[in-house]
Design a protein around this nucleic acid. Structure first.
Lengths: 192, 192
DNA sequence: TACGCTGATGACAGCGACTGACATGGGATG
DNA sequence: CATCCCATGTCAGTCGCTGTCATCAGCGTA
């Protein structure tokens, strides 16, 4: 039969992610126990930890896909593109995707902003992203040092643009903010 | 009397820091319990948590002083200095200090490199440092956006220089590496 | 059909990080 | 001398996280 149940409800991982998001919003991250998340998803605490390394990781399932998008955008940039421009193009593409999920992204960011441990996790995800971007540039023949710096600078540009996009009450355009942020970085680093 | 004991041995905090450093080196961070650190320092686990917010924080007591040095260096830069140059001067000063404590810094970094949670803590300390630097620039009349970007770019430059300084088998000069890293960033961000 | 294997889940015990509440007792202060 | 202060000790408790073993539907295979 279509829709017949197997032994278990499908998509346990997704149910855990959704339950966690709801509870983190409702009560806050610290006030939510893993047992509560699991119960709301119809599972046990032990199963939660089979799907996610820890209580924080359940919020960061999407970062992997975003990283793939960024890396593939860099890989498919024309050979003539300068490193910083390949990076900028990648972040603008990512910005477009994030903009489409604006409300969910804002909810998630609200949760993260309220808890230092979650900020730490986000930062290490960004650092890992930085390594991946530097690798992608390196594969295009860019020097190690230049690749690392372009990647880190790109992340700085993105972080600041993203922060403004989240906090501004209006509905600014994220790719546009990224471009402005990059221009400002270029102006700031322009040796006199 | 000089040297007479009070009720407790002095410098409990310092003893905890030292005990933690020794045990983290000897057995690794995860394999060391807080109770063991406290015992080695002649104290109890509860007292450890009165001095440090968590097991990781005991390794990051020095970051506060480094941040003060960076902020005051920026504050005392000549008015004519561009933001990026004030930042660079600050990091070069910090680099000089770190270079004087080379062995301890390397030990500490070895511990951190071996554990993801410690890397997370270091990243959030750097992020906090970035905010402080941006504030310091802002007090010099630099725009919000320019201040944030100069600070973040400076941190990227420092991180990459520091990483090379730690990993290179030779004894390269950290302030020199910072200057080279900054030059590379300027080259990479130079719009054509 | 019967058999056995697999893989996701449950059940349970246990460790260690961290917290709240209360007790203790020298040192400083009056 | 009486009093307060405050760094530390003691104890009980919660929760994140792990190791281990049991369960049992689905699936292939004899």
């Amino acid at each position: 039969m279509i829709g017949s149940m197997g032994r278990w409800e499908p998509n346990a991982r997704g149910r855990l992610e959704q339950a966690a998001l709801e509870l983190y919003i409702e009560r806050g991250f610290e006030q939510t126990t893993v047992a509560e998340i699991a119960k709301q998803a119809g599972l046990t605490e032990r199963t939660f930890f089979r799907h996610f390394a820890d209580k924080r990781e359940v919020l960061f399932g999407g970062t992997g896909r975003l990283q793939e998008l960024l890396v593939s955008t860099i890989a498919s940039a024309p050979d003539s593109a300068a490193p910083i421009d390949a990076i900028a193009a990648a972040f603008e593409a990512a910005g477009t995707v994030l903009q489409e999920r604006r409300e969910i992204v804002r909810q998630r960011q609200t949760i993260i902003a309220a808890n230092a441990e979650l900020q730490e996790r986000e930062l290490i995800k960004l650092a890992s992203l930085g390594s991946a971007l530097a690798d992608a540039l390196h594969r295009r023949g860019v020097t190690d040092l230049a690749a690392s710096l372009a990647a880190e600078a790109g992340i700085a540009v993105f972080r600041i643009a993203f922060e403004h996009w989240i906090n501004d009450t209006g509905q600014p355009d994220l790719p546009q903010l990224i471009r402005e942020s990059l221009d400002e970085l270029k102006a700031v680093t322009a040796g006199k």
